[in-house]
Design a protein around this nucleic acid. Structure first.
Ligand code: MN
Ligand code: MN
Ligand code: MN
Ligand code: MN
Lengths: 234, 234
DNA sequence: CACAAGGTTTAGGGAAGCCTAAACTTTTCT
DNA sequence: AGAAAAGTTTAGGCTTCCCTAAACCTTGTG
């Protein structure tokens, strides 16, 4: 009765973080986002997630099929993308305009994204030349919510001999980012899989002429574009 | 028993706004801040202020004498000044680095001040050359909490013939800021009181060679430094 | 098919912050 | 001084967002 007719502009910080998490989960897994997955991503008890799910559904931002998962409504997707745009523009601005190291922009953006106005975010984007991706290679949605996700594949999924360009790395863990930077695994870097040990063993890579060995768990957080995929268009 | 031994770094946004308000009230009024004044400044019911006062006192940030008012403890003053520094650095950065109009920096800073880290604020300050005052002329506290408040007097308090330099204007009301800018009443502007109508009447000023008339209510929000005061040192 | 395991929701509770109404204290006015 | 006015606090309630424990579905396995 009172559903779906709410201010909509004034989402709480926590609500915005839930929508972002649900958006991400919907993207990677094909289907709706599971309560447990949301809980894990946000480091919150599953029961608390159920509570927030109810509120978001009442506001018409998600649809909830009990015991089955949640999906964003068009309105919820728009809200998620607005927050994601803010997050990524802020990350980019901090790195480009203020010299922030790339392993620390994420935590700062995680809070600022809920406080910065659309106008501020637009001014930031303009000041640094409307970048297409954030410092970790993630695409920045446009003001209208449109995003062009490049076709990418996890570095972990490549076989020996494959050559690829790093498109994007997971940005949640600062220590991991520092380590990847040490290895030269940055967006735009060319990597070649020299060898792949069996039984989920480490990958030997050639990066910038140097040989590097990384475990599959780490390689799962590195997304790459392969020449074939680029040409075929995924 | 559990008083005064708390994280202290993690103050809520509302708590920081209360501390700022109490700091301001302590400065202008000489004595402790009254519940009603805090309520009016924050646009919150007086009863709600009593509740927050209890919490802030439990955290050792203020001292409360019931029915008499509150005062900041040294710890509370430090927390207030840290938030004020953030607010004013952010205002300055928005105006200088991002071309924000001076009538809109305040509202944006009012939210960002609770989300920006000290490191971000320091980087902003460095990027614009460590300004001494914000766009409205208010002094920016240093990292260690030290502030040098210039001796100022309300323009409203000047008599006919007085000459002064605008030091600072109230920044809470955007429309008022736009009007003052229209009149040329900006920090640094030289104003001369040409005439003063009796019975709380309007002041006629000369600003930039132009004659301007403003009411005493508006003049109360313009703080000026007079030559004598500057020389005598207040 | 039954049932254990895993995932999800409900029940009950707490802290923060806000509200209105009522009680209470202090100040001011007659 | 006594009473009205002004200011403050307390009482009782509400929403949001979090928690743990218990009930409840769904699924996969024996
Ligand atoms: Mn990020
Ligand atoms: Mn966030
Ligand atoms: Mn301000
Ligand atoms: Mn604020």
């Amino acid at each position: 009765m009172s559903a779906a007719r709410h201010p909509a502009d004034s989402l709480s910080g926590p609500a915005e973080d839930y929508l972002k998490a649900i958006y991400d989960l919907e993207q990677t897994r094909g289907a709706g986002a599971a309560t447990n997955d949301i809980a894990q991503r946000l480091d919150i008890a599953a029961a608390s997630v159920s509570g927030m799910i109810r509120r978001l559904a009442e506001h018409g931002l998600i649809e909830h099929e009990p015991y089955r998962g949640v999906r964003l409504t068009p309105q919820g997707r728009m809200a998620a993308l607005r927050t994601i745009r803010r997050h990524r523009v802020i990350e980019s601005y901090l790195a480009t305009a203020l010299g922030y190291p790339w392993d620390r922009v994420h935590d700062e953006a995680e809070l600022l994204e809920h406080a910065a106005s659309d106008e501020l975010v637009d001014r930031m984007a303009a000041a640094i030349g409307e970048p297409a991706t954030d410092p970790h290679g993630a695409p920045i949605p446009a003001r209208d919510g449109s995003v062009t996700e490049r076709p990418v594949i996890a570095l972990e999924a490549l076989g020996a001999g494959a050559v690829a360009v790093v498109a994007r790395v997971g940005d949640e863990d600062a220590a991991r980012l520092r380590y990847l930077a040490e290895l030269g695994i940055l967006p735009g870097a060319r990597v070649e899989v020299v060898n792949r040990a069996p039984f989920d063993g480490p990958l030997t890579l050639r990066v910038d002429g140097d040989e590097r060995t990384i475990g599959p768990a780490l390689a799962a957080h590195v997304l790459v574009a392969t020449p074939e995929r680029s040409l075929l268009g995924g």
